[in-house]
Design a binder for these strands. Structure first.
Lengths: 207, 207
DNA sequence: GATCGACTTGACCGTTTGGTCAGAAAAGCC
DNA sequence: GGCTTTTCTGACCAAACGGTCAAGTCGATC
């Protein structure tokens, strides 16, 4: 077990290699479906060597999850209360969509965890995540009250943005299967669709 | 191994009991995460007895999946080409939402399978499912061309209906955690939200 | 280039897991 | 009640799994 403070070059490199390999395996097999042998093999290391850098399979998984959860919420934090409401929310949706595009494995890892009851991050959900969402929902409500957005339930608006954007990462096989033989450009089409969806929904009726 | 044709009372009852227990376990643990012992215990039977009724763990799983896939697509098939477009699509969304409400475990079982690459139902997706979706997408396109719906990409509209409705089953823990301490009525609120979302999106601009 | 600590590994261990099997109970039938 | 077929179970097995350990190799520092 290497110390926390002084990280040697080799430690840094191998820990990163292991986390990358573990992300690949965990995201497509789930926690229980993934094996240390798979992870070690994907990392190009022996199993005991993997366990030299991480105390256990569980330790690798939780490290991945906690690192992920942080970056996952960045788009929400980037909402500007002083911006133009519709533009802000569409921009938020775009950021979330961009994360599905760039980090589909992270999205699937998260989806796996939540679908199976989120046993390891329930506290994070009920605590910090809830607080952040409530705050943003409050902001959206003030925009609606000011007549700058069409009236809509803020919490469910956020849920629907999550659902629609993450769908393209989490259900990728299904989307691809149905859209075949289209190329990879389907994600651009999807983004255009979502912009339209939320623009129409959020634009207040002209008086 | 019981024959297919003559099903005794006991066979019928126990096979159903096992499938019900397996649904409970598979939907919350995934295929690899579930164990035969868990399923047997949940069914109140011994493990060898479970294997007397099903050839293998895999056989239980695939039977669940194939039964599920059929009923899962019923709402799509119920679309009426001669109905009023917006009413038809909103009604379709409501049916999908109702399935999330009544069969959340089935939804999670499906989600687990797709997220992990749908290894067992890829053919179903690329074949019958794609065909059905393409057909409905064509219908929606004719409605749009006739000016009865606001222009929108039909395939992605269908995806977004799936994503938003299934989200409340698949990500139930997350939704509940954020909406606490609200009661179970949040699903009614969600449905209202979705009706608004799609009504606004689909209603053509007044000329 | 010797020394010390960091790194790596083959062999191994206990447990869990999916699955088998011979035979014991039940159930159905006359 | 006897006989056959179906249903059920305890004991067992081989493979896979997460994890350990003693011993070996490598890399940095002097």
């Amino acid at each position: 077990m290497p110390d926390d403070r002084p990280q040697t070059r080799i430690q840094k490199r191998n820990r990163e290699t292991i986390l990358e390999a573990a992300l690949e395996v965990f995201s497509s097999e789930g926690f229980r479906g993934a094996t240390l042998d798979q992870i070690a093999s994907a990392a190009g290391l022996s199993k005991p060597n993997v366990l030299y850098y991480f105390a256990s399979k569980e330790a690798i998984y939780t490290e991945l999850l906690s690192t992920l959860l942080d970056t996952w919420l960045d788009p929400l934090r980037a909402l500007d209360p002083n911006g133009e409401p519709i533009a802000e929310l569409v921009a938020y949706m775009r950021r979330k969509f961009e994360m599905s595009r760039q980090f589909p494995r992270e999205s699937r890892l998260f989806a796996n965890e939540i679908v199976q009851g989120a046993p390891r991050i329930l506290d994070e959900i009920n605590g910090p995540l809830k607080a952040l969402v409530d705050e943003v929902a409050g902001l959206i409500q003030t925009w609606i009250s000011a007549g700058r957005l069409a009236p809509i339930d803020p919490h469910h608006l956020i849920f629907s943005i999550w659902a629609t954007t993450q769908h393209y990462a989490d259900f990728d096989v299904q989307v691809r299967g149905i859209l075949l033989p289209e190329g990879d450009s389907h994600l651009d089409t999807a983004e255009d669709f979502l912009v339209t969806l939320y623009t129409r929904t959020l634009t207040p009726k002209a008086d």
